[in-house]
Computed example of a mutant assay.
Amino acid sequence: MTDAPGPGGSVPPEPPPSRRSAADVRRAQAAGEAGSPSHMRAARAEFETHVAHARAEFEEANERIKQRTGRDLIVAIAIGLAIGAVVIASLIFYKWIFVIFAIAAMSLGVFEFTRALLAAGRRVDVIPQLTCGVALLLSGYFLPLWLHWIVTIVVVVFLIVWRLLAQMIAHDGRTYAAVVSDVLTTGFVQLYVPFLGSLALILLARPGGEWWVLAFIIVTVAADTGAYGAGLSFGRHPMAPRISPKKTWEGFAGSLVAALIAGVLLAIYMLGLPWWAGLIFGAAITATATIGDLGESMIKRDLGIKDMSSWLPGHGGVLDRLDSILPSATAALALSYLLAPLVVS
């Protein structure tokens, strides 16, 4: 093959090797060396060194975070993303999948809670608690609101009577104060986990309720993330040192800012509400999520445990992830009624 002719119709002659500049020779040599196996191996080794250095720095930072918070950040993020994907997919496509997911989460939460109570010397009936909890959640989704309240009362009374009968049959000489504590604990377990969870299913059953459920879960997660990041970076002043020493006012401020931003965005783009309604939504969820977080910390401190279980690496137990979501369902359900007239159709 011949070279293409130049503008004048002739091919410019290639300069002889003796007339090539030194820069051209160096470029040619560099191009030849770049494709050599030794150069490729050197480049690969350099790349692997950079990757190993970056990985070591990340692991060192993760270890510092783990020492300060007691959580494995990488594992926590991976599990959180997996759970979030299931929740979002179920709410967007099929509500009944979220109902199944809620029943499973509630059952695990009740089981680990009752197990912790039994380890602390309380008497709790696990199987009746689980059975009544499932019934309470299903009634929240399928029955009218007034009938759900009746089911709640019947379930709590049934569990209290069951506990009293079981104590009468036991004849183990348990003190009166211990029996009263067992009865109160029995009712509390059912109201704390299944009943609060059923409020989320009541909200889900409403027209467009899946978007409200998704919104309040997103705001709760945003509040937890904001509290975690701000507390880790700027936390100096403990919020409730006797209940949860690691929670700070700086973390609460970060939680509030993140929740307000998420609330405004979700109000405008998901719920069809005015922006200021998003501020109310974010502030209310922040308040209930913080109360729920501190409340569970108080329960764990009373039981003498750090986490309800270790089923979710990086998070603790199922109930440790539901502590801020469960009470937030109450605020979300109430606001769905109060703010419904403001929805732009």
Rank of each mutant, 00 (worst) to 15 (best):
A262P: 01
A284M: 07
T330F: 05
G278F: 01
G187I: 01
G263I: 12
A82T: 03
M1A: 08
P5E: 10
D302H: 04
I218R: 10
V155K: 11
I77H: 05
W162T: 00
V257F: 13
G314Y: 00
V344P: 01
I65F: 15
I280Q: 04
M106R: 08
T225M: 14
V51A: 14
L138Q: 07
A178I: 01
V75S: 05
S336C: 12
H148Y: 07
R163S: 12
G9Q: 15
L130I: 13
D182G: 14
L322W: 07
A42Q: 11
A205Q: 02
V155D: 11
A105M: 01
I83K: 06
L203G: 00
I268T: 14
W149Q: 06
R44C: 10
L256E: 11
L73R: 14
V183F: 05
V11D: 04
S198N: 03
L279N: 02
S181E: 12
G9R: 10
P17S: 10
L322Y: 11
I97P: 01
E250T: 08
Y176N: 09
R20Y: 14
V11W: 08
R41P: 01
L159N: 03
L333M: 12
E296S: 09
T152D: 00
E46M: 03
A30E: 13
D182L: 11
L130Y: 14
L199H: 06
P313E: 13
L118R: 12
A222T: 12
A105Y: 00
A267P: 12
A28H: 08
A230K: 08
F216P: 02
G316C: 03
P12V: 11
S255N: 09
D3W: 12
A283F: 15
Q190P: 00
S38C: 09
L130R: 15
H315P: 09
F281D: 13
L118T: 02
V221Q: 13
Y269V: 05
L191P: 11
L145M: 06
L199N: 02
R174H: 06
A284V: 09
A89F: 14
L138H: 10
G317D: 13
T220G: 07
L165T: 04
L196P: 00
T290A: 06
S309L: 03
V156D: 12
I202N: 02
I285H: 02
P313H: 14
P238G: 06
L147A: 13
Y192G: 03
R174K: 02
A222M: 15
G173E: 10
G133V: 02
L196F: 06
L165W: 08
D182Q: 14
A31P: 08
D320H: 03
